[in-house]
Design a protein around this nucleic acid. Sequence first.
DNA 1: CTGTTAGCGCGTTCAC
DNA 2: GTGAACGCGCTAACAG
Lengths: 357, 357
Amino acid sequence: MEHDKARKSIKLQDIAQAVGVSRTTVSNAFNRPDQLSPELRDKILEAAKEMGYPGPNPMARMLRTGQTGAIGLVFGESLPYAFNDLAAIAFLRGVSRVCERVKASLLIVPTLESDAAQKTIEQATVDGFIIYNLPDDSEALVRVLDRQLPVVAVDQPSLKNVPSVGIDDRQAARKAATHLLSFHHKQFAIMAMELRSDLYVGLVDAQRLEHCTHQITKLRLRGYRDALEEARIDFSQVPIYECRNDENHAREVAMTLLQRQPRPTAILAMSDILAFGALRTAQQMSLKVPEDLSIVGFDDIPLAWQIRPRLTTVQQPLVEKGVLAAELLLSKSVTKTSKVLGTRLVVRESSGVAPTV
Amino acid sequence: MEHDKARKSIKLQDIAQAVGVSRTTVSNAFNRPDQLSPELRDKILEAAKEMGYPGPNPMARMLRTGQTGAIGLVFGESLPYAFNDLAAIAFLRGVSRVCERVKASLLIVPTLESDAAQKTIEQATVDGFIIYNLPDDSEALVRVLDRQLPVVAVDQPSLKNVPSVGIDDRQAARKAATHLLSFHHKQFAIMAMELRSDLYVGLVDAQRLEHCTHQITKLRLRGYRDALEEARIDFSQVPIYECRNDENHAREVAMTLLQRQPRPTAILAMSDILAFGALRTAQQMSLKVPEDLSIVGFDDIPLAWQIRPRLTTVQQPLVEKGVLAAELLLSKSVTKTSKVLGTRLVVRESSGVAPTV
DNA sequence: CTGTTAGCGCGTTCAC
DNA sequence: GTGAACGCGCTAACAG
């Protein structure tokens, strides 16, 4: 870039000198139009433009005012991964809607869990943080809390002293399972999102089940279990497969699951992406959905109704979660009210009566 | 939040005093571990923790160092809209990959075109900007340029002195049209993205065609025209419909287009979302794709191959665009090399031989 | 390894 | 409507 060296970074002072007024007056010209005559203001602004003044330095202003005009967003997953997750994107849409309304910027902070360099969080110049789905043992979580800024948590009901917005994951998952039970299914399989942040992938045993650090996964598993056990199904015999939330991996996992004997007639998937993968695998195996296999997803992202058969799924208000999180963060209210939003089962074409054996 | 009033914002100085060392030493304890003995460092850090010190104030640090550790991103569309655009999201994924690698944050700056309050751009504490698809006459564009920071433009080949990354939109669009021509299509219709930022929606007349401020729309239209005119088709007779890049609107527009006499046998859509809308409308009208109607999209987002029939489309390296833009911005190289990435036509199931009348 | 000295560029009283 | 003074909290030299 040429600018850097050209001018020795011209500042408020310089243009004050050029116009022959004091620094304050120039500052006022930019920030308080009502504090000086329009003529003078125009004169100053013009001089500034001529001299190529980039405007009051935002960093200096921030230091002075203590306000950044930005809200921070920390995801529990890596950024490229989050931007691959349509549920996260929908949430982001909600947040961005509020940002736009209040003219705040959105600082998305990457957080390499493994890396000691959690500097990004310490460096973030924001007025507060929204944390999205951080695992309980997350290093990022303590870093955010250390900043002593306002925080709102999303999908993390368990944090003390941190207002949160989310859904009743347990209840929502239960709805999905109950729906399938009403169709007389007996052979279930569960495609779960990650239980811990250790990149493990595979069947989940009892011990791992106990040590689940991802709240929503844990709660949804409980919801499935609630329903299944109520129907006298031995939950310990239900295969739970931990997957990456990714179509291709979901396809592989579904393949494994569908080759088990007895073959599941119903798949409970913790996201629509996982459900979609299962659907494609079923089609590839020439299994008819829902005649041979029922699938219920979670989230109700657009894909759920764009594909055929349309996905039966648990709808959750993703965008609204974002809106509320942002509003909660911005509201000065000391009342740390946590919001629990509603969900509903949307029955479409991927679920039906269990096949008779 | 409780923190604000509780402690009178404790600072470096305070903890220096408490431990009985100088401010610098405390600063070093945080930023340069190698500059003091481990014991002292631990002692300082512990004292800091006890006193509830949130760490060196990022704003003050920024002012001092002149570095923000963040890169700004400005979209040509409203934020909620951008987060609805899967092509933009894929681009974002690319940017975020680089951010994560270099531990930089990503500041997404909303920009209400109509609003005089373009403050967000002036206030953004970033080391540089990536601008994505800003219209030529955009107020935001001049604001960004005014900041005199490094800038990289995406999909905006025409800016002077601003390195850019993009594709050859004209050539890419031409491929789509040529493909359909090879199937002997004669009756075309074009579903275009916006030509200007005035929220107009409807058929595009010659005059509007002349005053197109959105580069990529303009270039793609030219590409379509190049191919069509080469095939002796009167381009002025080809209906061009300007749509919002949104599935529902695309469906309506497609309905209008497909009710024209003679009915188009081929639709050139400037995005996969538009193509998808057309596809659904065709199905709803009981038109067979591709037997009765061929459709070619643009972008090759996942949806293109997730739906049936799969979409024939022009693939562009969306993620790579993001990666390159970010890398270009971060590279100190004074060489303002603009990158033009390759595209290719992906022939799938939504295009075929023109129906015989 | 430690401390001293200087600002980074600005916003805000408060007098004039 | 204007200007002088003060300090936001920190880091970069450099000297010890």
